[in-house]
Design a protein around this nucleic acid. Structure first.
Lengths: 201, 201
DNA sequence: GTCTATATTTGGATAGAC
DNA sequence: GTCTATCCAAATATAGAC
C-alpha cells in the first residue's frame, strides 16, 4: 500500500536550492550591479552550470521577479515588526527611518524595487501585489497622524524617496541626507497642521 | 606656398557626424531603454556598421559620456534662459518647474544624468564639471530666497527629485506629482521662515 | 537534477583593404 | 572614413544523455 507522506523531501530541497540561488543572485547584484547579473556568474556562484538554473527558474526575468518578491517580503517583515507608540507622528518618523535605512543599505535592491531601470523587466502581478501592503501601512500611520488626504501620502513618499535618492546617488555610504530626515518629516507635518487649521476656520 | 584655412571642413564634418550619432543614441535610449543601447543598433540607425562608430568614439562608454555631456548642456541652456523677477521665491518655483519638466520629459536622460544605473559607467570629470554649474544656479536662487544653508540646498534637491522620481516611476506621462510641486515648494519655504524667525528671537 | 553539447543571438572591439 | 572580415567573449536558452 502506498502512503502519502506529509513532508515532500524532494520539494523541500528544491525550495532550499531556489532560496540559495536567490541569495547568490542578490549578492552578485550588490557586487557588480543589478543589470550586470548573468546566469553564468550566478551558476558558478552556486556550483552549477548556467543551464541547470533552468530547473529552478524559467528565465532570467523569472529570477528578477523572485528577487523582487523577496525584497518586498523583507521590507514587509521589518515593517510589521515596527510597533506603535501613543504618538502617531513618532510612528511616522520611525517608519520613515525604517524605509530610508532599508533602501540605503542595499542600493541594488532599491533599484529593482523602486526604480524601473532593467530594460524589459517589470514585476509580475503576484510579486507586485504585496508591495501595496507596504504602502498601506504608511498610509494608515499617516492618517493616524492627521494626514489623511491621498495627496498627503503622495507628498510623503516623494519626500522620503527624494532623500533616499540623493543619499544613494551623491553620498553613498554617508549620512548627508539621512541627517535631514527628521527635519523633513517635521516640515511635512507643519504643512499638514497649517492646512488643517485653515480648514477649521 | 601652403595656406592654413581658418575653417577645417573635414573636422566640421566630423563634428556634425558625431552630433548626428549622439542624437540617434538618445533616440534609441528613449525608445528601448538606456541600458539596452547597442552599437549595432546605433550604427544601423545612422547608416553605418557598428565598427565605423569607432572613428567617432573610442568606446561605448565614450558615447555614454558624450550623451551625458549633451544632457547637461541642454539643461544649462534652458536654465540660463530663465530670467529673474523681483520675487525670489517665484524664481525658485520657476526653476523647480523647469527642472521637473526637464526630467520628466525624458526619463532615459534623467536616468543617465541623475541616477547611477549603468554598470561600470560614470561620467568623466570633464563631462561632469558643468553639471556643478546647474546646481549653483539653484543654490544662488535659493540664497536669494532666504535659504542659504548648505543643508537647505540638500533638502530642496531631495524634495524636487523625490517628486520627479515618483512621477516617473508611478505615473509616467501623468501629472499626479507635478500637481504637488508648488505646494511642496511652499512647504519648504514655510520651514525656512520658521527657522529664520527662531533665529531672530 | 545536472551535465554536455549546442543553438542562437548579441555584444564590444580590432585588423587591414580600399 | 567606411567597409569586410574576424575575433572573442558573453548572453539566454534548448535538447538529450546520464
Amino acid at each position: 500500500m502506498s502512503v502519502t507522506p506529509t513532508r515532500d523531501r524532494r520539494s523541500e530541497r528544491h525550495e532550499a536550492t531556489r532560496a540559495e540561488i536567490l541569495e547568490a543572485a542578490w549578492e552578485l547584484a550588490r557586487e557588480q550591479g543589478l543589470a550586470a547579473l548573468s546566469l553564468r556568474d550566478l551558476g558558478r556562484k552556486v556550483g552549477m552550470r548556467a543551464q541547470s538554473l533552468y530547473s529552478y527558474f524559467d528565465s532570467k526575468h523569472a529570477i528578477y521577479d523572485a528577487m523582487f518578491a523577496r525584497g518586498v517580503a523583507d521590507f514587509l517583515e521589518r515593517n510589521r515588526q515596527l510597533g506603535s507608540t501613543d504618538n502617531p507622528r513618532d510612528d511616522v518618523r520611525a517608519v520613515a527611518r525604517l524605509f530610508f535605512g532599508f533602501c540605503v543599505e542595499d542600493p541594488a535592491r532599491y533599484q529593482l524595487l523602486f526604480q524601473r531601470t532593467i530594460p524589459g523587466f517589470e514585476p509580475s502581478p503576484e510579486s507586485f501585489a504585496p508591495s501595496v501592503e507596504g504602502l498601506e501601512l504608511l498610509s494608515r500611520r499617516l492618517a493616524d497622524a492627521g494626514a489623511d488626504d491621498p495627496a498627503d501620502l503622495d507628498l510623503c513618499t516623494a519626500l522620503i524617496t527624494g532623500l533616499v535618492d540623493q543619499q544613494i546617488s551623491n553620498d553613498p555610504g554617508g549620512d548627508r541626507w539621512y541627517r535631514l530626515l527628521d527635519e523633513a518629516v517635521d516640515m511635512y507635518f507643519a504643512r499638514i497642521d497649517t492646512r488643517t487649521n485653515r480648514r477649521k476656520r
